[in-house]
Amino acid sequence: MAALILGISAVTFAVEMDPREKAVLDQLPGANCGACGFAGCAAFAHEITENPEAEMACPAVNEAALNAMSEILGRDLGGGAAFVAFIRCKGTPDQTETRYNYVGPKDCRAAQLVAGGSKACQFGCLGLGTCVDVCPFGAMYMGEDSLPHVIESKCTGCGKCIQACPRGIVQLIPSSGNFCVGCISSDISKDMKQLCKVGCIKCGICADVCPFDAISVAKDKAAQIDQAKCQTCGLCVSVCPTSVIGFVHTPVKVHVIDEKCKGCGICASVCPVDAISGIIKQPYTVNQSRCIGCGMCIDMCPADAIERNIS
């Protein structure tokens, strides 16, 4: 009897829903993280279906889902480039000074409220894992080193962690493999060194060597990599004296296809780390221990004779 009533009411009171909206909703991640600015995935699915002007605001969809949705709605949804979160602090408790013993809730935002946080560097990670707690995709974890780590394959770039971090040390960078400086300290080098052994010392070597002019650094500002200019050559990583520059994916090194190589030598001349050598008109070779996988040689080779070492 009750089932009958339920059945009837289900039919009677059913809400008309655009079938496309349902299909779009199925493609969205379903985490209801709110990064799109709407109250959950269903609300955004409704918006993007009903409003022909709406663009893809969900940062968490992958390319396949984006294409599927474009097909469902029959229009280009924009959006695109995927981002991942990057933690811009490498100050583990044994590398960075602590000012006092903090007693209180395990939440960085709350810890920041009492005496400004226990880490001596006022730009450093407080290490209580609020970013990890708020991540709707389980893409972060606290490491043994008391710093948060991002699981890049799970991170969708929704930006929840950025909002949660009281010290603003999380940055979104393109997941295609860009580099990023693991420090945001604005203290001048002398002051910073007293507090932390692994921060950016503003030496500027990275900015000097960057072949693309993508790095800016100042006396009171940690090195900053312009993600639009960065070509992921990785030269900065190899020269940084405090190893504070990190990357999303390990760069894949390259090798020369002997059959195709005409021995022109262009690759050797563009290589920023002098990893390619050879004799004119004979196949060149890549010194694997020096190669940083920047791929500049691939772009320049007229014979398409260089490829990445993908198994």
Partner: peptide, 13 residues
């Protein structure tokens, strides 16, 4: 429980 701390945290948010 650090109730006052929680309250300060909520007010800050």
């Amino acid at each position: 429980r650090p109730i006052v701390h929680f309250v300060k945290h909520l007010k800050a948010l």
